Amino acid sequence: MTLSHEDTLRELHTDDGTLRYHEAGDGPPLLLLHGSGPGVTGWRNYRHNLPVLARHFRCLALEFPGFGVSDPTAENPMAAGPEAVLRFLDGLGLDRVDVIGNSMGGYVAVGLAVAHKDLFRRVVTIGGVGRNIL
């Protein structure tokens, strides 16, 4: 399966700006949260894994505010991340998803998992840091 940036790119208009994301596949929803750093985006973090994951999941690679093609934010992008995830899931009508978070995305995922215990079914982090949940 070949997926392109243009074919997978979607927009979700929220009360706090437009969130852009990449969507591919069918099945249970899988939220993909990218890391931080110069030039990082959800597409760059997950584009090579997206075709494989899309065989089993409805993949949703969110572009955090201030990164990629989502609207900028006046907040620190890491501080804006958790609320953006909540707006994103609410806007898509999703109340429970699996999540993979890379680096900063792992930090955001773990923080949300602690604060909203029913939000995620499974959490996988790749180089993520967060609060100890045990």
Rank of each mutant, 00 (worst) to 15 (best):
P38I: 12
M104R: 10
E83C: 05
Y21K: 03
V110F: 01
I126Y: 11
G81I: 00
R20L: 04
V129I: 14
A80E: 01
N45E: 06
L12R: 12
G106M: 02
G101R: 00
G130Q: 04
F88M: 08
E23T: 13
A113L: 00
H116A: 05
L134Y: 14
T14Y: 08
E83L: 13
G81T: 05
F64Q: 04
V124H: 06
G105L: 01
L9D: 04
I126G: 02
F67C: 00
V108W: 14
P51I: 14
F88L: 03
L92H: 09
E11L: 02
E63W: 10
R20S: 02
T18S: 11
F120W: 04
S4I: 10
S4E: 09
H116C: 03
V124P: 03
V97H: 10
G105R: 09
S36P: 06
E63S: 06
D90V: 06
L33Q: 12
F120V: 00
A115H: 02
L19T: 13
N102Y: 15
L12T: 13
H5G: 01
A61G: 06
N76L: 08
G91A: 07
I126W: 13
A54F: 02
L134I: 08
G128M: 08
L53R: 12
E11A: 10
L94W: 08
S103I: 02
M78L: 15
L94Q: 05
D90E: 14
P28V: 13
F64S: 02
H34D: 00
T14Q: 03
S36V: 07
G39V: 07
G106W: 04
V52F: 11
P77M: 02
L119D: 01
L89I: 03
G68L: 02
R87F: 15
V97L: 11
E75N: 12
R121T: 11
L53V: 08
G81V: 02
L134K: 12
R47I: 09
G25E: 06
E23C: 09
P38W: 12
Y46S: 00
L62M: 09
L19A: 05
N102T: 13
V123L: 01
A115L: 08
D7K: 13
V40R: 14
T18K: 09
N132Y: 13
M1K: 15
H22N: 09
M1S: 15
D71A: 14
H48V: 14
H13R: 14
G35E: 06
I126A: 12
D26N: 13
L30W: 09
L60N: 01
E83P: 07
L92N: 07
L30Y: 01
D26I: 14
P77Q: 05
D90N: 11
V69M: 08
T2C: 05
N132L: 14
G128V: 00
V69A: 12
R87M: 10
G127K: 07
A24F: 05
F120A: 00
M104S: 06
R10D: 04
Y107N: 14
R96D: 00
S36K: 08
G39C: 11
M78P: 04
A24G: 05
I133T: 15
G35N: 02
Y107L: 12
A24I: 10
A109V: 05
Y21A: 01
R122V: 08
F64T: 00
G68C: 07
L86M: 15
F57C: 01
N102D: 06
H13D: 13
